[in-house]
Computed example of a mutant assay.
Amino acid sequence: MKRMLSGIKPTGRVTLGNYIGAIKPFVSFQDDYEMIIFVANLHSMTIYQEPKDLRQNTKDLIALYLAAGLDPEKVTLFLQSDVKEHAQLGWYLNCMVTMGELSRMTQYKMQVEKAKARKDTSIGAGIFNYPSLMNADILMYDPDYVPVGDDQKQHVELARMVAERFNHRYSETFKIPEPLTPRVGGRIMSLQDPTSKMSKSDPTGKGCIYMLDPINISKKKIMAAVTDSDSHVRYDKENKPGISNLMEIYSILDHKSYEEIEAMYEGKGYGEFKKDLAEIVGAELQRVQDAYNKIMASGEIEKVLDEGAKKAGRIAYKKLAKVERKMGITIRK
């Protein structure tokens, strides 16, 4: 069975975009792949997190993974910080990349531009160095595939390059992973600005649906979503980004193709389409929230994380020992 690996940061509340793009696909993958999924809480340290919020967001994220249908018997689910080898391998691999390579990473360049805009040149070193930790996260487990959105493919490409560099210098050690980009739902956009990704840090909150928000609020956000002056429900991402984004959500949650959706609303306006979509989103949120509440009350999260860390730790221990022997860090051969 092929192995697949992914991680998600516990910063901010989980959005419908996170659910559709990252969490929900894993439920279908878990029967076909050996899944390793971690909560990337070390990566959350690149910017300050209020401790109580980080703790709650981490717990919520794990509970939502399980509520979505991930089976701990099929999936290895753990906290990144519980497997100490991540940070150690991250340092070794950090010594194998150049400052030029790290400075070309999109996230770092975005932070530089934001710093310039606010006339503040102070950018945390974690923002610059985090791709090396991400390289370790990926390469530690020799995955065949790493599912990513279009905006994250750059990270997998860097991991591939570092793996090839290490293998060339020290002999075959890491598997070269392949990025896996979903055809639909990889990047759900803001409901108010369909040219921007749905973000946890949405300044108004109107463009973002949070998985644990009251259902009626989420329905209202769907009804108020930006579309266009046309009234034809048609998928055209370039010319009709707003309605296309809503159709993407509809397609994923109700298992219908764009062609089927277009046929269903032929001759009907956006109002009826939005009303139906609001009900579909509401039903999905209700199902997940009911499961979430049961999981939070059960106390099973700690057990799942403990078991996941043990399984991941066994793989990580062997890989790190192999890396250290190859590099000469340890005197053992």
Rank of each mutant, 00 (worst) to 15 (best):
D236H: 10
K24L: 15
E300I: 11
L285V: 04
V233N: 07
R234L: 08
F29M: 15
K2T: 11
A117K: 15
D213A: 09
I249S: 05
G100Q: 12
P214A: 12
G308F: 10
V97F: 05
G242K: 04
E113H: 05
S6E: 01
R332W: 10
Y317C: 04
K268S: 05
M96D: 03
D82S: 15
N41H: 10
M296E: 10
I280Y: 01
T15D: 04
G12N: 09
T181Y: 00
Q286F: 04
D60M: 03
T181M: 12
D151A: 11
S81L: 02
T121Q: 09
P179Q: 05
I36V: 14
R3N: 11
E302Q: 11
N129G: 10
I222N: 04
A117T: 10
A297I: 06
K116I: 06
R183Q: 10
Y108V: 14
A68H: 05
R187W: 00
L285S: 09
P131M: 08
K268T: 01
G299S: 06
P182T: 00
T98E: 05
P131W: 08
G271I: 13
F29S: 14
H155V: 03
H255E: 13
L66F: 07
F273V: 10
D71W: 05
L180Y: 04
L139T: 02
G7R: 09
M45Y: 10
E34A: 11
D31M: 08
A312N: 01
M211Y: 02
L180K: 05
F38M: 12
E324G: 00
D213W: 06
E266P: 01
N245E: 09
E248N: 05
A224S: 11
L64E: 12
E113P: 02
M161F: 08
D53A: 13
S6V: 01
H168E: 14
A159L: 09
P177N: 12
A278R: 02
V281S: 05
T11C: 08
Q56R: 13
T58Q: 08
M161K: 15
D276M: 03
I315N: 00
I243E: 08
S44N: 04
K303I: 15
L180E: 01
I217Q: 14
A125T: 15
C95M: 12
M134A: 02
E85V: 01
V146C: 06
P194N: 09
R314V: 05
I331K: 10
P241C: 05
L77I: 15
A291S: 13
D228S: 12
N41F: 00
E262Y: 05
Q88E: 15
A297K: 12
K9A: 13
T98K: 07
R325G: 14
A316Q: 00
K175R: 15
T46S: 13
V162F: 01
S190N: 07
S44A: 15
A87G: 09
K319F: 00
R314P: 00
A68L: 11
S218Y: 01
I127Y: 11
V75H: 07
K84N: 07
Y270G: 00
C95A: 14
M134T: 03
K206L: 13
E259V: 07
L139F: 07
P203Q: 03
A159S: 15
N167M: 04
P194S: 08
F273A: 04
L133Y: 06
V146H: 07
T15I: 06
L77Q: 06
V162D: 01
Y317P: 00
S81N: 02
R55S: 13
K109S: 04
S229Y: 12
L61S: 06
E302C: 02
G308H: 12
Q192M: 12
E113K: 14
G90R: 05
S122F: 13
